[in-house]
Design a protein around this nucleic acid. Structure first.
Length: 838
RNA sequence: GCGAAAGUGGCGGAACUGGCAGACGCGCCGGACUUAGGAUCCGGUAGCCGAAAGGCUUUGGGGGUUCAACUCCCCCCUUUCGCACCA
């Protein structure tokens, strides 16, 4: 008996894999490729089992696909720029580069100890100039194409992090990272024109059939396409207000106009007001409120001005309202209180007129008795020549008429906004722009990249961009005129780094281009991508955007970067997300020391389907370890008997027991293959393998009647029949191969024990034979009025007609049908016989 | 409020296209082997009734379709997640 010593096996095989460069790959047009990717990691310091679950899942896919004959790219890297390292530097004085590289080294060790089969020679870290040089390269390409632009804008400022946040990084008015309530600030910022691709990004979602529906829906909502019209309401006394509406059919009910507090006309109205101070005082109340507070109730005030509804020609009051968003549409709306709940509430609160223009039901409800807005589409009433017509046809007509009369135009609005990428932070990619008094905004020429991040030694976290304090960085020469110029001192949002890293893995050492189009054409798109749901919107949307930009730049010839997406569930401890601050982190290294990498890998895959959240369980891990010991003993026991080449499994001459083993083996191959490749139910793949092991144990029991002695109880004794040996060998080989993606170290060793001179890398996935998998005897339940009353054991070849007769002849069936009329007998696939009586 | 997903034993979960509910594992109970067992092996384990054979009930609740429903349809409840005044 060879003892199972997992820690030794881990070490032995990990060394062997590294030495043989087992997971390094090159493009090979003759073989089908498979690009398997897990979201790269932020090097926070330690990976806990929650993180690691994702890497194990990817590894099972990668290893399975290798055995299936694919040329598998399975790389890993580090999303190495970002706030936490900088915050730590402010606190402890350790330079972000030092802490980041240290963290990377540690985490890499953790992943290697888990035996994740990464092509480490392709490792990347975004904080290295070799990488961020191409962030700058892409930025410049976007600048050339007008997709990167600068604009003066109000931005979200986090007083705690001392930086600007993207809209997407503001969660309910608070900083996504520290939770501090954000305030607004006015700064000159760089933006990526993602809105130019809004429609395409939306349409592309339809092609993502192998993405979770949830993620597709979230992206669709985020892009938020609305079709409607922009309509001009002339202001009495000069000027005009443009509103955006999706309900132009209700325009005859537009009885007032609302402006966002930040609308440009509001300032003008204030200065023209009878009492500008009072006007501004009211306005100031709204503007001071943060986003959250604004949502608490609907408030507004009359500007005293009036506009003309271009359809009714009636003069309507113009109010300022806190709930109108400056950043959406035109920052102004036509209010139709009868048919919009918000406008209704507002009108009731301030006693503004309500006019019903869409008939709901048989007759119009009197305005006085209305308790809520009627928002449904319907037949128009009191709408001049449009009266009697119905939406949506009338909307098209009204828009067409508005266009003819030049009072409006059909328009599509998106909720998606351009992506602000400027960060007043140190630990990021410098934006490759120079400001020259003479030449203005000048892009750094491509041949001068990278604009290296200077080594700032003291980070205070206060004030604006740390780079502004580095004189030798700021002061440079204008690339155009050679005169004195200043560098841009902001760095890029780190989401830029992660928007294209999957492409860099195709060609990670290219010094001239982000990647070679030939290698990306071979490897891309990513066939299987997995990571946390928290990236369902931002990272995935930005990556889809970048892919399209790089396509238009000419580097790619496809639209969607990720074919199949899996959103990984989190691992909880005591019902909570693992985090250092909660002190409930399970460190994989502790588990490794106790059970080895394979038991941990197996447990994490077995405990639940990958999308689901799971609660960490120590006893579950122990169970997986026990299973491995059980497999080990089984293989160890039979290794000598079945070892060596050339013994075929039994054919027609099988005994029942041999036949049963072969049947189970092939049925398991079928199920495990489908479970891993198609359904991604890794947990049931494992349980099928457990069933096979159980079967082989019972089989082993049956082969011997020896006296069991001291522990552990031995399995069956000598087997003479060559056919049995062949069947066993087939079963054990298949078992070990199918286990290998889950427990690669133990599997390599057992594969070796079974007499295979080459490693599993040289082997291929077991082949499924439908004829063998088919059982020759089946148990057929017989239902009477839906209740199972009997079971027939018959040859699998029994015809439906025979089954029917056998069922009706069965004693128990006759007992239950005695004295009753048989009305119907159904023989269903399954097989199953269903008898209906009386 | 809108949108999405999900509710199955003591627990994690399984049931692939409407066809034997509870696979597999954890836990628990019993047995074997033992100086010992927290190792190992074997057996049991949804609930209720019954000595047993067997019977009845059971997939959040209520209806329905069907020979047959965890699965399909309608109503309701609960939970989780996402968006949250987008005109």
């Amino acid at each position: 008996m060879t003892e199972y010593k997992p820690q030794q096996l881990d070490k032995k095989w990990q060394q062997q894999w590294t030495a043989s460069r087992a997971f390094e790959v090159t493009e090979d047009p003759k073989r089908p490729k498979y690009y398997c990717l897990e979201m790269f990691a932020y090097p926070s310091g330690h990976a806990h089992v929650g993180h690691v679950r994702n890497y194990i899942l990817g590894d099972v896919m990668a290893r399975t696909k290798r055995l299936r004959g694919f040329n598998v790219l399975h790389p890993f890297g580090w999303d190495a720029f970002g706030l936490p390292a900088e915050n730590a530097a402010i606190k402890t004085g350790t330079h972000p580069e030092t802490s980041t590289l240290g963290n990377i080294a540690h985490m890499k060790g953790q992943l290697q100890r888990l035996g994740i089969s990464y092509a480490w020679e392709r490792e990347i870290a975004t904080c290295l100039p070799e990488y961020y040089k191409f962030n700058q390269w892409i930025f410049l390409k976007m600048f050339e194409r007008g997709l990167a632009y600068r604009k003066h804008s109000t931005v979200n400022w986090c007083p705690s992090c001392q930086t600007v946040l993207a809209n997407e990084q503001v969660v309910e008015g608070a900083c996504w990272r520290c939770g501090t309530t954000i305030v607004t600030r006015d700064l000159e910022q760089w933006f990526f024109r993602i809105t130019a691709y809004a429609d395409e990004l939306l349409k592309g979602l339809e092609t993502l059939t192998n993405w979770p529906e949830k993620v597709v829906v979230m992206q669709r909502n985020w892009i938020g396409r609305s079709e409607g019209a922009r309509v001009t309401f002339p202001v009495v006394g000069g000027g005009a207000i443009e509103v955006f509406t999706t309900r132009i059919d209700t325009i005859y009910g537009a009885t007032f106009v609302l402006l966002a507090p930040e609308h440009p006309l509001v300032e003008q109205f204030a200065s023209e007001a009878a009492d500008p101070a009072a006007f501004r005082a009211q306005l100031g109340r709204f503007r001071a409120l943060d986003r959250d507070a604004r949502l608490t109730g609907k408030e507004g005030f009359d500007t005293g001005r009036r506009a003309v509804n271009p359809f009714t020609r009636a003069e309507v009051p113009i109010w300022v309202a806190n709930f109108v968003l400056a950043e959406y549409g035109t920052g102004a709306i036509m209010a139709v209180p009868a048919h919009d709940q918000r406008d209704f509430d507002f009108a009731r609160k301030y006693s503004l007129p309500i006019r019903v223009v869409v008939q709901s039901g048989d007759r119009a409800v009197p305005v006085e008795t209305m308790s809520e807005a009627s928002i449904n589409y319907g037949r128009l009433i009191d709408s001049a020549e449009y009266t009697g017509q119905e939406a949506p046809a009338v909307m098209r007509r009204m828009i067409a008429d508005a266009e003819t009369q030049r009072i409006g135009v059909g328009e599509v609005q998106y909720r998606l906004k351009d992506w602000g990428i400027s960060r007043q932070r140190y630990w990021g990619t410098p934006i490759p722009i120079v400001y020259c008094d003479k030449d203005g905004v000048v892009p750094v020429p491509f041949d001068q990249l990278p604009v290296a991040l200077p080594k700032v030694t003291t980070l205070t976290g206060k004030g604006d961009s740390p780079l502004a304090q580095v004189a030798e960085f700021v002061h440079t020469k204008c690339p155009v005129c050679g005169g004195p110029a200043r560098r841009e001192t902001d760095t890029m949002d780190t989401f830029v780094d992660s928007s294209w890293y999957f492409l860099r893995f195709c060609d990670p050492r290219n010094a001239d281009l982000p990647f070679d189009p030939v290698s990306s054409a071979y490897w891309m798109p990513v066939d299987f991508y997995s990571g946390g749901v928290e990236h369902a919107i931002l990272h995935l949307l930005y990556s889809r955007f970048f892919t399209r930009v790089l396509r238009d730049v000419g580097l790619l010839d496809f639209d969607e970067p990720f074919k199949r997406l899996l959103t990984q569930g989190m691992v909880l401890k005591d019902g909570n997300v693992m985090s250092k601050s909660k002190g409930n982190v399970v460190d994989p290294d502790d588990m490794l020391a106790q059970y080895g990498a394979d038991a941990l890998r197996l447990y994490v895959m077995f405990v639940a389907p990958p999308e689901k959240e799971v609660e960490w369980s120590g006893s579950g891990l122990e169970g997986s370890f026990r299973f491995l010991v059980r497999v080990w003993r089984l293989v160890d026991h039979w290794a000598e008997t079945v070892g060596g080449e050339g013994i075929p499994a039994c054919g027609d001459d099988c005994t029942d027991a041999e036949r049963a083993v072969r049947q189970k083996t092939h049925e398991t191959i079928r199920r495990v293959t489908i479970d891993i490749e198609e359904r991604m139910h890794l947990n049931t793949a494992v349980s099928s393998l457990m069933e096979l092991v159980n079967k082989l144990y019972t089989f082993s029991e049956g082969t011997v009647h020896g006296a069991p002695s001291r522990s552990p109880k031995p399995l069956g004794g000598r087997v003479e029949r060559m056919q049995t040996i062949g069947a066993l060998r087939e079963a054990l080989d298949a078992l070990v191969l199918m286990l290998s993606p889950f427990v690669p170290h133990s599997a390599e060793e057992m594969w070796h024990m079974l007499g295979h001179p080459e490693g599993i890398a040289q082997a291929s996935w077991p082949t499924f034979d439908a004829a063998i998998a088919k059982a020759d005897e089946v148990t057929v339940p017989v239902q009477i009025n839906g209740k199972i009353r009997a079971r027939l054991t018959v040859p699998a070849t029994t015809s439906d007609e025979q089954l029917r007769e056998l069922a009706l002849a069965d004693g128990a069936v006759r007992h239950h049908t005695a004295g009753r009329t048989i009305r119907k007998v159904v023989v269903a696939k399954g097989p199953l016989v269903s008898v209906v009586v009386q």
